[in-house]
Structures are given as C-alpha cells and as structure tokens.
C-alpha cells in the first residue's frame, strides 16, 4: 500500500482525484466521528450475532473467543448494536476526549 490518502500532497493526486485503487475507502477512519463507544459485558453474550447483522458500518466481527466486537477504527458509535442486543451485553459510553 502506498501512502495513505491523508498523507498525499497535491502533486501526488491522480488527475481529477480519480481513485485507481479498489477498496481504498477502507483507509477512511470513520471511527473519528464517534462520540460514544460500545463497551461489552461478554459473560452475558450468547454469540447470536445480532449486533453484527444490524451494524450499518459492517464493522462488527467475531474475536478469537467467538464474541462479537466492533472495530473502533470504523465504529461511528451509533449505538444500534446496543439497542438490538437481546441480552444487553453492550452499553454505550461517552468518549473521554
């Protein structure tokens, strides 16, 4: 992977800022938008995957233990996962910064 988009100088842009590499939207840190983050109480988790299904950003994945967890690089903190979780694993906490 070449430079990230936010490091490119004006001279390095493709004509008309045409994107020639597929999938470069994955570089975009939408997690920057977040004012709340999901916090998990995994002992209540039944691994049903509802949070993954409902996540509009598609950023929820299973970790090594099989629990579902949001990737905070992309998570915008919308709270839909916390609302949909049937066993109330997820609570939304204010970001400190």
């Amino acid at each position: 992977m070449a430079k990230r988009e936010n490091e490119l100088t004006w001279r390095e842009l493709e004509i008309g800022v045409i994107a020639t590499e597929p999938g470069n939207a994955s570089q975009y840190r939408t997690g920057d938008w977040r004012s709340q983050k999901p916090v998990y109480l995994f002992e209540r988790c039944i691994k049903c995957g509802m949070c993954q299904l409902f996540c509009p950003e598609g950023c929820v994945q299973q970790n090594a233990e099989g629990y579902f967890e949001a990737d905070l690089y992309y998570c915008k903190g919308c709270g839909i996962c916390a609302r949909e979780c049937p066993t109330m694993v997820i609570t939304m906490e204010e970001e400190k910064e």
């Binding site: 988009e5 936010n6 490119l8 100088t9 004006w10 001279r11 842009l13 008309g16 800022v17 045409i18 994107a19 020639t20 975009y28």
Partner: peptide, 18 residues
Amino acid sequence: VAMGDFGPPFIYTEAKWA
C-alpha cells in the same frame, strides 16, 4: 476507476490547489 469521489477535509484543499 472511481471518479468524483468523496473528498474529506484531509484531501479537499490538495484537490483544489492541484
């Protein structure tokens, strides 16, 4: 290729100067 993409604040100034 993708044309006329989204240009967040980190790229817009560079795009306009170019």
